[in-house]
Amino acid sequence: MSVLSGKQIESLMQEEKKDSLVITPILDDAQLGPASVDLRLSTEFKVSVQTRSPILGVVEEPVETFFQETYREVGEDFILYPNQLVLASTFEYIRLPQNITGFVITRSSLTRLGLNISSIIQPGFAGTLTLQLSNLGENAIKLRTGMRLVQLVLYNVEEPAMSYRTNSASKYVSDIEPVLSGISKDKDLEMLRKLKQNN
C-alpha cells in the first residue's frame, strides 16, 4: 500500500470515469497538501447526552435517545467540552474507487488542543464522513463550521477490493449527515443471540 501524493489525488479527481475519485467541493487549493486532503467541518451535530439508561452500546434502547441534534450556520462557532462525544460530518462529499482506501486523522494544530479524531474509510465508500469529535483536553475547544478539521490520507489498495457501497454488511452508505452508531445491526450479534437462545 502506498500513500497518494497531493498531485496524484488532484489528478484522480479530474478523471472522468464511472469509478473515479470524488472529493467535493474543494473550496480552496490549500486543502490539497503534499500527501493529504484537508476536509472541513459541516453544520450539523449530534451531541451525546446523559439519559436515565446507564449504558450505551449493544442495548435494546434506540441509540437516538442518547444524542441531541443541534445545527450551526456556516462560519458559526461550536464549543466542544472536555470528555464530550459529538458526531459531526465533513462538508465534502467523498466517493472512493475500489482500489483506494483512506484514513482520517485530526489536523495536527487541533490535536495539540486535545481534539481527537481518527477513522478508516473502506474502498468504494460514498457519502459525507461522520466524524467522532472527542475532546481529550482539560479546556473547551472552540471550532468553527466550515473550518479545515481533518486530513484525509489516501492509499492505493494492491488488489481491487469489494466495494463498500455494494457490501451487504455495510451500514453507512451515501450518508449526508452525521450518522449514529449502527452497532446493534451487526450480523454477528444476531448470530450470538440465536446461540444464546439455543443453549
Rank of each mutant, 00 (worst) to 15 (best):
V3W: 04
S11H: 09
E16F: 02
D19K: 12
V22A: 04
P25Q: 04
D29T: 11
G33E: 07
P34S: 14
L39M: 06
L41V: 14
E44F: 00
V47P: 10
S48R: 09
S48G: 02
R52F: 11
P54V: 10
L56F: 15
V59E: 06
E60H: 01
E61W: 02
P62L: 06
E64Y: 01
F67Q: 03
Q68A: 13
Q68R: 14
Y71R: 11
Y71E: 15
R72F: 02
E73M: 06
G75I: 13
G75E: 14
E76C: 00
D77E: 15
D77V: 00
N83F: 09
A88W: 04
Y93Q: 03
I94R: 05
R95V: 02
L96S: 14
P97K: 12
Q98H: 08
T101Y: 04
G102W: 07
F103I: 14
I105G: 04
S108E: 09
S109K: 01
L110V: 07
L113F: 13
L113R: 15
L115F: 08
P123C: 11
P123Q: 13
P123N: 11
F125A: 08
A126D: 02
A126C: 06
G127C: 10
T130A: 06
L131E: 12
S134G: 04
E138A: 12
N139T: 05
R148F: 02
Q151E: 10
V153F: 03
E158F: 01
M162W: 07
R165H: 10
S168D: 10
A169C: 01
K171F: 05
S174R: 05
D175I: 14
I176S: 04
S181E: 09
G182K: 15
S184N: 11
K187I: 09
K187E: 11
D188H: 06
L189Q: 06
L189C: 10
M191Y: 10
L192D: 08
L195Q: 13
Q197H: 01
